[in-house]
Amino acid sequence: MSAGLVFSGVSVRAGAAVLLDGVNCRAEAGRLTGLIGPNGAGKSSLLKAALALVPLERGAIHFNGADLPTMPRRARAQLSALVEQSGLAEVHLSAREVVQLGRIPFQSVWQSAPSPEDDAAVDAALAAVGMAPLAARAYQSLSGGEQQRLHVARALAQQPQLLLLDEPTNHLDIHAQFAILELLRQRARAGATVLLAIHDLNLAASFCDALIVLAGGRMVAQGAPEAVLTPALLRAVYGVSASVLRHPASGRPLIAYDGPVAPGND
């Protein structure tokens, strides 16, 4: 048994299409792990499989030694949270009410009002994403970035030991992206297991402690960003030619793209 989220031989299919094909990988507790790969690589499917939103065809997923997909729903919801890619939703709730949804796994059917612990968790989550001043605003009146921050806050209100996020920095300006990633890094430092799907490789390189690379439903690499992000991998997985430099201040990998790899030049 080990702390963190462990995928062992995970296969998922939708009809005839194989979405995940025998994926073995892990996201360790206390670390911020980035899940990268081109569109359709299976990043969302991997996150959904962990929370039993799609059925496993083969394999197992354990969190801190416990079988996560077969765990009772409520117990799983008290342990883990997911921030999905946000779509268009017609929701007539205030910002605070959206974050309060995160307390549902902790509330009994008979409870008529949020408990003091619920309120404290909601306040803390709103403050963490910088949305406390907008708590009374209607969800619909918020910008895409503000709505995205609320979804992160809703997940934080679940006080999860396992936090899964599907491209949480979409719709955000660069400052807000940094703020969210810094927040996630702090959660990881506090002991949580944080796994996020992310497209921006330079952001992934500068914030993540470890990276998992998926392509075509298979795990093709995992490890520290400097070990994973090589010109050869970028060429093979993304079909781009790039130089990997070192960030002058942090020493982290810094990718300078040259352009797409010409067809037949592989």
Partner: peptide, 11 residues
């Protein structure tokens, strides 16, 4: 409010 998947992850 945010769909079936969101409801499922809330238990």
């Amino acid at each position: 409010a945010f769909g079936d998947a969101a409801a499922a992850t809330l238990g």
